[in-house]
Design a protein around this nucleic acid. Structure first.
Lengths: 235, 235
DNA sequence: TTGACAGTCATCGTTAACAATAATTGGCTG
DNA sequence: CAGCCAATTATTGTTAACGATGACTGTCAA
């Protein structure tokens, strides 16, 4: 199930091979299998994906443009380490966009799309009960992407996917032990509110939900400073 | 005044030189000096910007990732021709995001930022009275970007800049003679509503404003089909 | 005159070699 | 033994040349 192919950027301009690399890294970040500040060396990626250096380089550039990786001149590509300011901006942007999306969904709910979301909730439950942590993290994030998909606006979908991925990075950096995944019922309550066409309530729930996740973060102490240590302790 | 440097993507990962190219093309599209379907050949761009082919190629890839240019395999890079569906999606996304932004602005207006917006309106008036069409088009679009800037969220700023630029493309493709620029007073009325903390009204005005622009489009008949003719009439 | 075909040309895509920068390791000295 | 300096190594950034694809033009035949 996890091997289901995302349509990458949905952008025909981008070579499928590079899009695949981008997708894989996106997913890895979403599942928090790639920690912030992880080095993504070109030779390693070339070997991993069995492609030439050019493809890897282009993929890294695309990821950098979306703030997922940090391209340091003459040093290499590293998984991005969002600053607390960036973190706040990403979450605020998500609140703004996602509340708008659920309001639209509630205003004209499409039973078919809602059913897909319900199925998604089912998968989340399965993963939660089955103890598949990685899968649960992925699904938790992807629920929000699915909200955008249900909305049907691919532009918003793309934007939100980027934001959700960056949010995963942030949770990975600043997340405390508890609250790393979305509380079980909040997603279903959001979907419920949409179903009964209560847009205001759905928006309120989304805002609350995202702020709840933020509250579970400790913006002061970051986990991703493994190699800042050198510069801190140096000299 | 038009040579004021935009901070490109604000992304330190991207080489300043490429960012400059991206910015220039962004601006040209915004000012409708680059029509949809215009070919952006690599040699021409290399000469224009005095850089190597690699830089141009990277810049084009970044533009393609944002839907500004269309990268056709073995054919070259062309300024994108958004479909009517894309057009609707872009405008809908803008309504969603911009209404959210003005609501936030109205909820906690910063007098300093508002003053900057007022100055921007002044520049728009100057351009309008001075008959500087190109400049007016640019400023009209940039007002919306400035709204995001005033909001202070750079993530939203980046997203909105992309959307406004794509909207410029759309207006260039489907725009009828009248209504190509924003009606004079709508921007000021939006700013007014924000000033008096009337978020709902500001949101209403923004929505109305954007829908007004959309109404000035003829999604049926596109101006950019110059070379689709061949494939349509061919064989 | 018009259509099709072939040859030429330009442009794009890819690869490989080269240059430059930063990290690492080893040795040297205090 | 610790700290520093130098040389090597690995990785990145750039350039240039090559191969491939598509576009154009001029010719020839119907």
């Amino acid at each position: 199930m996890s091997s289901k192919k995302l349509i990458s950027q949905g952008n025909p301009s981008i070579d499928p091979e590079e899009a695949h690399i981008v997708d894989r890294i996106f997913s890895a970040v979403m599942e928090q299998r790639l920690a912030p500040n992880t080095k993504l060396s070109e030779p390693k990626l070339c070997e991993t994906f069995g492609v030439g250096r050019m493809r890897v380089r282009r993929a890294l550039l695309l990821l950098a443009a979306q703030g997922i990786v940090d391209l340091q001149s003459n040093k290499g590509a590293y998984v991005a380490c969002p600053s607390p300011i960036e973190a706040a901006e990403v979450f605020h942007a998500r609140v703004l966009i996602e509340t708008g999306i659920v309001r639209d969904l509630a205003a004209a709910p499409d039973p078919e799309k809602l059913e897909l979301l319900r199925e998604h909730l089912g998968r989340e439950d399965s993963a939660r009960l089955g103890g598949e942590r990685s899968e649960l993290i992925r699904l938790s994030g992807e629920f929000h992407v699915q909200l955008a998909k249900a909305h049907g606006n691919s532009v918003l979908g793309r934007v939100l996917r980027e934001l959700v991925t960056r949010a995963s990075l942030i949770v990975g950096m600043f997340g405390t032990s508890r609250g790393e995944t979305c509380p079980e019922d909040e997603h279903s309550r959001i979907l419920e509110a949409i179903s009964r066409k209560d847009g205001d309530e759905a928006a309120r729930l989304v805002q609350h939900h995202l702020e709840h996740i933020q509250d579970g973060l400790d913006l002061k102490q970051s986990k991703g400073m493994n190699d800042d240590l050198k510069s801190i302790l140096g000299t």
